[in-house]
Amino acid sequence: MFNQKQLDAIDNEIQTNLISAGIDHVLLVDMAGNTIAAHDNGKSSLDSTAFAALAAGNYAAVDAMAKLVGESEFSLLFHKGEKASINFSKINEDTLLITMFNKEISLGLVRLKVSETVDKISTILNSG
């Protein structure tokens, strides 16, 4: 269970690093499919409850595939669409950061921002 201070710090990191950089939606979910934090840029809507369940399932399936080919994990997943793309990054054994962004923002910038945010959220989660 995360405390109020951790949740505030996580929200702050997502807002300042990711949403303000132009990312449309950011979800922090646990591997059971529960949503810990959900943020968006206010311009588009997303059924985050169903998305979190599917994302956790998707990540779990890929993780199981990684083990079948002898990898300990695929810590990063990326789905590219015509207009929108999705990036999945594992934070720790129990949590996953999902970012959805449009073609206006470069993949390189997203990866850089996500990587920084993953480190920061990881530190916050360990501080609990």
Partner: peptide, 15 residues
């Protein structure tokens, strides 16, 4: 395990 969010005051339970 149930997710309890003290900030949003939400509980998510998986059955």
């Amino acid at each position: 395990m149930a997710l309890i969010n003290v900030k949003t005051r939400e509980v998510q339970i998986k059955i």
